[in-house]
Amino acid sequence: MQPDQHEIELTVNGTRYRRTVESRMLLSDFLRHELGLAGTHVGCEHGVCGACTILLESDPVRSCLMLAVQANGRALATVEGLASADGELHPVQQAMHAHHGLQCGYCTPGILMTMTAYLTEHPSPSEDEVREALSGNLCRCTGYQNIVDAMMDAAARMREEAS
């Protein structure tokens, strides 16, 4: 069987890419190995761990549960696009650093993407809401407490930025 190839065009972090991909290539593999955006990590490839979370338009999704070909014509955002061009960290990144919200850092990109999407929609969450919002991202190092604190702080930083 000849590989089933498709030409796709998509935007990631504001940059347009045009590639030919085999239909079965997972979006996570495409981002990491075809576009070199290796900040999106792969932890389980069955949609549970959340390490591969990216934004599809503005919605967080598992990039291991989408085919690259499905992203044709779509706009994606990954961890590489969070900090500003001059290197200033996004409030969620600043807060994670300030609160020691990461240890090995492997789950971190997915957590950052989940946080940004959630906080954009819910600027003043309670701790319970924050825990619920994080419940689809597994972290094995931190016990979550500092991530929760970081997310609460990031909310405050983002509110301040918005005001």
Binding site: A38, G39, V79, L89, H100, L102, L112
Partner: peptide
């Protein structure tokens, strides 16, 4: 002291094995 290694990890620039 805040961690030196965080920036790479937070910006997706740290080299893990599959990278």
């Amino acid at each position: 002291v805040k961690r030196n290694e965080d920036r790479k990890l937070l910006t997706g620039q740290a080299l893990f094995i599959d990278d």
